[in-house]
């Protein structure tokens, strides 16, 4: 396995006395995607901002290729590309000029910049809009331009903060392809997302953050299994025995019973699954593998945000 290009140890950040990131550790390797997941307010964006130097950590160390970030800030930032969640395009310039202007914020200068811009325009299918204002772009193409801009200087590490939020399904799939392509190019990518399917499909490794802490990390299917087990029972709201089933499951120690629009979702063990089937033979319910929706709900419920 290749060694990590980005290493962070003990990252901690507080705002107004409240700890928003609590001794977080993470690594990211070239040619891999690290997914940073967590409910709103978990500390994902703050973690990202510390990693790319927007805000300094209160504690902890960040290194890029073994270089301590705080001591080699300029060299490290030359290696970093950032695509923020907010639209920070320069609407005073054309699509192509946005790439040229952004490249001017880096030293050493981007080599063969004309060719690099043309290559990015082609790769992200922006060539027809090269001389147009970004105002003419749809949401999906604005996002394409933001991502293209973030790699104009050929970074080694790329931070994508919720890159597909607000996009329609087709545009999301296109963005996935682009991200997958950048991973194949050898970029180390750190991605935050609220979309469960995106995190599962794109991430080589997941880091689940809750209240600023690492609650699980590893391969996506293993992370979910560690936190939620192998099965999730779903009891529909119209099932007459719903309330009795909920009481029964709780009596057997089920602690993560979640109600979503009246529908019960409960992670259960294989033994509980068999017992449930025997106890409520005529009841209607489904069983499926746990997914990140279940994880989010469990974490949000732990935080008191869902009953």
């Amino acid at each position: 396995m290749t060694s990590a290009i980005l290493e962070a140890r003990g990252l901690t950040k507080s705002y107004g006395g409240r700890v928003v990131v609590d001794h977080l550790n993470l690594d990211c390797r070239p040619g891999s995607v690290l997914g940073l997941l967590g409910p709103n307010g978990a500390g994902k964006t703050t973690t990202l901002r510390m990693l790319y130097g927007f805000v300094p950590p209160d504690e902890g160390a960040i290194s890029y290729e073994g270089m301590e970030f705080s001591k080699h800030r300029s060299e490290a930032k030359r290696m970093i590309g950032v695509c923020t969640q907010e639209d920070s395009l320069d609407y005073d310039f054309t699509v192509a000029q946005n790439l040229f202007i952004y490249a001017s914020y880096f030293r050493p200068r981007v080599e063969n910049l004309d060719r690099r811009v043309a290559e990015l325009l082609a790769r992200f299918e922006l060539t027809p809009y090269a001389d147009a204002s970004p105002h003419v772009l749809s949401g999906g193409f604005v996002r394409r331009l933001l991502i293209a801009r973030s790699i104009v200087h050929r970074p080694r590490v790329l931070f994508l903060d919720e890159p597909t939020t607000g996009l329609d399904p087709s545009a999301r799939l296109d963005a996935w392809e682009l991200i997958d392509g950048m991973r194949s190019d050898g970029l180390a990518i750190v991605l935050t997302t609220h979309y469960m399917d995106e995190a599962e499909r794109l991430s080589d490794e997941l880091l689940v953050v809750h209240e600023g802490r690492d609650v699980a990390h590893g391969e996506p299917h293993r992370v979910i299994g560690d936190l939620l087990g192998d099965h999730v029972v779903v009891i529909p709201r119209h099932e007459p025995a719903r309330d009795r089933i909920e009481t029964w499951l709780q009596s057997r120690g089920a602690q993560q019973v979640a109600t979503v629009l009246g529908e019960l979702r409960v992670p259960v063990s294989k033994d509980d699954l068999l017992a449930l089937s025997a106890e409520f033979e005529g009841a209607t319910w489904q069983v499926r593998p746990p997914n990140l929706d279940d994880l989010f709900i469990a974490l949000a419920r732990r935080n008191g945000r869902i009953r």
Partner: peptide, 13 residues
């Protein structure tokens, strides 16, 4: 409004 500085501060500047 334009968030121009946010975009710039995500670079080496």
């Amino acid at each position: 409004y334009q968030k121009t500085w946010d975009g710039i501060l995500a670079t080496q500047v």
